[in-house]
Amino acid sequence: MDGTKSISLFDGKKGDIIRITSMEIEGVMRRRLLDLGFVQGALVEVIRKSPLGDPIAFRVSQTSIALRKEESTRIQGELIRHD
């Protein structure tokens, strides 16, 4: 265990598991992220980058969701597991 280091989803490495603490996104996009399970306390795993590096796919509430850099840099969390 690495303790609780705070990072954004974008900075996570493949295999990292991050517990969401806050999202600096407003409006429709925030509501859409909530619907998909990006809620406070949710565990998110970094799965893979797209061939051109952006977007990145995350595993959240048992599904894979890809987010662009613009959004994933604004979702903060605690690094729970680091491979």
Binding site: G27, R32, L36, A57, T63, I65, A66, L67, R68, E70
Partner: peptide
């Protein structure tokens, strides 16, 4: 006009 992106990979 604002933009947002999410994509599910089923």
């Amino acid at each position: 006009v604002p933009t947002h992106y999410t994509l599910e990979l089923p």
